[in-house]
Design a binder for these strands. Structure first.
Lengths: 117, 117
DNA sequence: GGACTCGTACGATAGACACCGTAGTACGGC
DNA sequence: GCCGTACTACGGTGTCTATCGTACGAGTCC
């Protein structure tokens, strides 16, 4: 049976007012997490955890997604068996205008500079 | 005898091309280091280490200044017995346009929001 | 219900981090 | 040369981080 209710289990997210710049910067200072955020920004708003092909085990990936969620960078919701991840663009843009976009731009630029993609 | 040469001892800095965004974000994710950078941005370009009234011992302060220098955020030079610190604005603005300014703006905004200064 | 998929929880671990204290070096002034 | 100031280097310590493996829970499909 399918309903329109997303799911019963939901995960603890910091409220907008609880998001701290230092925590966001710390979250983004890890290469793996920065990559996740870049993919989220590029590919749209909702991606499942398993969409990302990360060079770590699943438990490590879970850990990184949790760091991103607890720092307020992403929002996670269960949708059936998958867990969808979305950037908290709205909140971040209100709290720290321009930060997300300039950071994403800088990351893209560096990636290009270092021969990545 | 005084000469115009700044000093003989000089400290290892990463070249512009070696500065990594992740390292910069990590450097700025510490409250103490973010505070140092904010003061540097506000007060002009060259401040001695002892100018800052940090709530840690001198050896810990030395450690934080080294993290900032090695990540490419600040430039340090000896000037007599003092060690002067300056933001690497030029390099950072070329590598990551807008990042430093939006980050400083976000830090100021958060500081205001949280009742600081 | 049973199998399968997706993701979690927990425990372990090696390394990094933030911090201190003590001892030492470099420079400037007397 | 001697002393004070500014900062460093080194060693130690407790905590946090990133990683893994194994065991488990929630949901879907047959």
């Amino acid at each position: 049976m399918t309903t329109l209710v997303a799911s019963s289990r939901d995960l603890p997210h910091p409220g907008r007012e609880e998001i701290r710049l230092e925590a966001v910067l710390h979250a983004l200072s890890d290469p793996l997490r920065l990559r996740i955020v870049r993919e989220l920004a590029a590919d749209g708003d909702e991606l499942s955890c398993s969409h990302f092909d990360l060079p770590v085990t699943k438990s490590t990936a879970t850990y990184h997604f949790r760091v991103l969620r607890e720092s307020g960078v992403i929002r996670q919701i269960y949708r059936g068996t998958a867990k969808m991840n979305g950037l908290r663009r709205d909140d971040l843009d209100v709290l720290f205008p321009g930060v997300l976009d300039t950071l994403l731009g800088a990351a893209a630029r560096e990636s290009r500079r270092l021969g990545g993609g």
